[in-house]
Simulated assay, not measured.
Amino acid sequence: MVDAGRGTQSSRHAGRFSGRRIVVTGGSRGLGKEVVRLLLAEGARVAACARGEESLDELRRSLDAHDEVFTRPLDVAEPELLEQFVDSAAEAFGGLDGVVACAGGARGRGITEATAQDWAATWALNAGHFARLTASATPYLEAAGGGSVVVVSSISGWKPGPQAQYGAAKAAQLHMVSSLARELGPRGVRVNAVSPGSMLIPGKRWDRMRQEDFAAFQKFTEEFPGRELVLPEEVADVIAFLLSEQSRAVTGANIPVDRGQNAPTPDGY
């Protein structure tokens, strides 16, 4: 649920995205849901995709009746389905002004256990999905006079932690941001990354640890100078900044939102 502090901040920027059209992958839960809710609250028209129809139904039920959201269930690791979604969103909205590659994740375990399929699937879900989303959205962003691409990477992209296939895919996203910012800049398209630290999301890993093994959770908080994990709404605020005109001079950047976190996991790295 959006907290009271978020309401104050949103009202301060009311209408910041009025009339803007934005695609968010992985937009039904956790960070993606926070991004969708924030953008809608500030006037955007949002297209969100996720793998499950049920989670998208839940997203729609959580929104105000006046919110304009276009949803479709799909696996972002399937390029054709992702590209069709982008085309459909652009057709429904009459164009696009921004995209957020929020979907991501990992398959497999350690290096001696992970299969070639695990590595390929992790790559497709992170780097491959980001590449196809950017490629399919760029003509629409250029036609709109320029736009913003934001990818949700991770501090695991440069801070070592398990599993290697996940860190490698996230590191690839960061390299792509630097490269694509140079390539697409002449077309008016900005490309940036946000790299969250460990986020405290209800029902997810760190929240379960807090409830089931509080001593281990307290030990993990020592990786944060302030002894607090990151909240998804804090990351969503930075993503919104990078989508907005307030960041028009920012491209090719990676912005960590990690509260100064050291190791990305409590697993001894």
Results as ranks from 00 to 15, higher is better:
137 A>N: 03
93 F>V: 02
49 C>W: 01
239 I>Q: 10
28 S>C: 05
187 R>Y: 06
165 Q>A: 07
36 V>F: 03
177 V>W: 04
240 A>Y: 01
132 R>F: 12
127 A>W: 01
38 L>G: 07
227 R>H: 15
94 G>P: 09
18 S>G: 14
157 G>C: 06
70 F>I: 03
125 L>Y: 00
133 L>W: 11
16 R>Y: 03
109 R>F: 13
158 W>S: 05
21 R>C: 11
167 G>L: 11
172 A>H: 10
140 Y>S: 11
176 M>P: 04
257 V>C: 01
146 G>V: 06
133 L>A: 11
96 L>E: 01
89 A>D: 08
56 L>T: 10
192 N>K: 05
2 V>A: 13
8 T>W: 07
72 R>Q: 15
104 G>T: 11
96 L>P: 00
58 E>I: 01
172 A>R: 11
20 R>K: 15
254 N>G: 03
79 P>G: 06
246 Q>F: 07
108 G>S: 13
171 A>L: 11
228 E>D: 06
145 G>R: 10
239 I>P: 01
111 I>V: 15
262 N>Q: 12
30 G>I: 02
29 R>M: 12
38 L>T: 12
51 R>K: 07
196 P>R: 14
97 D>L: 13
55 S>W: 00
195 S>I: 00
38 L>S: 14
230 V>D: 11
98 G>I: 13
266 P>M: 04
112 T>G: 02
